[in-house]
């Protein structure tokens, strides 16, 4: 019990990694189970942010440089661009299929 309290009182690299792991799992869950394409996209965003946390955490605790920060900012920018494009795709899908349910969009099968 004491160890647990001590662990919680002194946040370090592990905490951030656990947080990022949780975030990643949640994102993955969303991506794999949601039917709505928009929700899937949100899952992707969560995954990206989990990766960002990893970058920043490793940059802070392992290396002394700010490379990780830079990459994180880069990822954020990419995520913004990716979101714009994905939303445009979803919009097109909606116009073509009249739905955003990813299960109904399985025409690549044949």
């Amino acid at each position: 019990m004491e160890e647990v309290v001590k662990f919680l009182q002194h946040p370090g690299l592990t905490h951030y990694l656990i947080l990022s792991g949780l975030l990643f799992s949640l994102g993955l869950f969303a991506v794999l189970t949601r039917r709505n394409a928009i929700m899937v996209l949100m899952g992707v965003e969560l995954i990206l942010n989990a990766a960002n946390i990893n970058f920043v955490a490793f940059s802070r605790y392992v290396s002394t440089s700010i490379d990780g920060h830079v990459v994180a900012i880069f990822v954020i920018i990419l995520a913004a661009a990716e979101a714009a494009i994905m939303l445009a795709i979803v919009l097109n899908i909606y116009q073509n299929f009249n739905t955003v349910n990813v299960d109904d969009i399985n025409q690549l099968k044949d």
Binding site: V40, D103, N106, K109, D110
Partner: peptide, 12 residues
């Protein structure tokens, strides 16, 4: 199967 999420599961 044609379902995106299945593919993702395979990829995972």
């Amino acid at each position: 199967t044609g379902k995106v999420q299945t593919y993702l599961a395979f990829a995972l």
